[in-house]
Design a binder for these strands. Sequence first.
DNA 1: GTCTATAAAACGATAGAC
DNA 2: GTCTATCGTTTTATAGAC
Lengths: 196, 196
Amino acid sequence: MARTQGSHSDITGPRIRAAALRLFAQDGYAAVSMRQIAKDVGVQAGALYNYTPDKQSLLYELLRGHMDDLLTAREAEASKQLEPLAALEGFVRFHIGFHVARPDEVFIAYMELRSLNAENFTQVESLRRRYENELEGILQRGLESGAFSVDDAKIATLAVIAMLTGVNTWYRAGGRLSLAEVETIYWNMVKRAVVA
Amino acid sequence: MARTQGSHSDITGPRIRAAALRLFAQDGYAAVSMRQIAKDVGVQAGALYNYTPDKQSLLYELLRGHMDDLLTAREAEASKQLEPLAALEGFVRFHIGFHVARPDEVFIAYMELRSLNAENFTQVESLRRRYENELEGILQRGLESGAFSVDDAKIATLAVIAMLTGVNTWYRAGGRLSLAEVETIYWNMVKRAVVA
DNA sequence: GTCTATAAAACGATAGAC
DNA sequence: GTCTATCGTTTTATAGAC
């Protein structure tokens, strides 16, 4: 039986989110119009409102979904309980691999936090804190066991995450270095900066 | 003799740039209207066009000016020729101090690069490269002298700069740590990551 | 140099036909 | 579910009075 004319509910929603993700990453949330998103998907602007109540919700769902994905993926890794050194290496390699695979999501998760309204910002920010706490916990345990030596665990956490996320500004698949090589280079730097 | 009514050409220009800087940093270039900038300065929107041909030029002048300031300040420091270890410590402390003192400029220099048109982007990007080359040169000289040991000088350059610039995301004057303490903590991490 | 007024276009979001 | 049409607002930028 033929579908109702123009009915594509099960694929249009994901295509809208994919177009919004790409356009927000490329031009910024405020600079992208609902008409641009609609044109990219191949529908008229009015049709978008069958899938999102407004533009703000579209951004929030992208950022919220990205942080959920990050924490879920990290939980799967972290469930392997390890001693501090192996846990830290696991975190470094996980962080680089996860972020390099999702450049657009990572970019808007950084750049468009301020475009969220107050309530949505609080939600996403708390998820980011939970992720940072994963690394801070590893560093703390390593300090207590004597495996690590840093002046300040919180600052070391922020410094390592900033350094690792920086990979996204230059890494491109098929470049001079493989992902595994990049992971190893960064792991060597982190290890030397942190291990006693 | 009284000035012509409403004439403030020598102070309105800087006030426009200061308002644009603050608003662009707070809400993003695309989200800020010329009317908002005018209201912040205390003039009508039309008056802005006595000082800038358009909104794009306003952004470009802010970013270009910031990069000029950065390179000029760095040149003054770098003219003291030093051995690699002292040069690296000088770079780390200079970078943190310079960036922490200009949070709004640093923020838009990161976030609004993509809001520049192609020609302006090329200009600003080349200045950013020149600054990165300062650090890369120090690392290269240290590698050649055997003072440093890193897997890849270019990646180490990007990693160190990303780590140091990350200070701006959390540092606030009057917080738990003084600027000198922050500089020392980061210098210790950089030193351990890089020095042979 | 700043003002008021406005041109010309684009915006987010909605109503109603199909 | 998607379309066309449109409301009401806001945008950048300019023209001309003072």
